[in-house]
Amino acid sequence: MHRYRFILYRPIQLLPVLIGISIIIFVLVRSIPGDPVRALLGARGTPESILRIRAQFGLDEPLWTQYFYFIENLFKGEMGRSILYKIDVLELIGTRIEPTLVLVGGSVLLALLIAVPLAAIAAKYRGRPVDHIIRLMSTAGLGFPAFWLAIMLILLFSIQLDLFPVAGYGKTFGEKLHHMILPWLTVALALSAVLTRNLRASILAELHSDQATAARARGLPESVVFWRHVMPNSLVPTVNLLAINIGWLISGTVVIESVFAIPGMGQLLIRGIFTRDYMVVQGVAMTFACATVFVNFMADVLTVTIDPRVKL
């Protein structure tokens, strides 16, 4: 099991990356013009009350002191208080993280359910009409603006057919499921276009590889050759593609959350940026960054599990 040894030292390598991210986030957020306290107090703000609240949030300290507070608090598991919502950012994120996780997780799963069979069919019938159709669909799919696709799906399924709600998230499990189907479909369609193209190419290469020929020469039926030899070898690059795209995927969900009015992290972020709610923007951005880093780490673990040759 020595090939899993990187699990121990990879977090140490990732530490500089996370520090870099925290610095960029901190600097960016402080550079947003406008004073959150003034925005909060509005016309009621007297010079004294503004100073008092600035001190209360630590905004009167020098920037680098504020940065160290930020890091120190991060290690204590605190991300400050939201000026707008008047609660701890961590708590706030806690209430908003579920819809986002459900959206991202469900979309990836659905995208794989769409992409794997399509790629397999296209590769199998290479050069035939069905291959051309799938390739054309995935090429076109790359260029679909997700927010527009979302609106079109709403138009068709919610307004014309009245099958799904237009927006929102719901409270019970059944309601949530009902609300999430269109958002899942939107993100999954966009993602599956990328995955199908990539997977088709690797399946094609593997179908004609020496090892597949050798497997056929052992008398294994084509289905066994495909699922046990071609597919595992083709999935390695796809897993990495998925990991590289996770940042893009999170960004996509931010927009999709705002189209469907899903009360998730993306909405929180956009709201935070517009209201200059420093702590919230900081917290959400840090969470997104950590999630990206974590997903890439998990992709490495998965790659090593599928492909024993990979050394990390």
């Binding site: 990356v17 991210i21 960004s251 960054a289 990206t292 890439n296």
Partner: peptide
């Protein structure tokens, strides 16, 4: 660092 950064966050800010 840039790759790990959710780029829409960067772009929006």
């Amino acid at each position: 660092v840039v790759l790990a950064f959710p780029f829409l966050v960067l772009m929006l800010t």
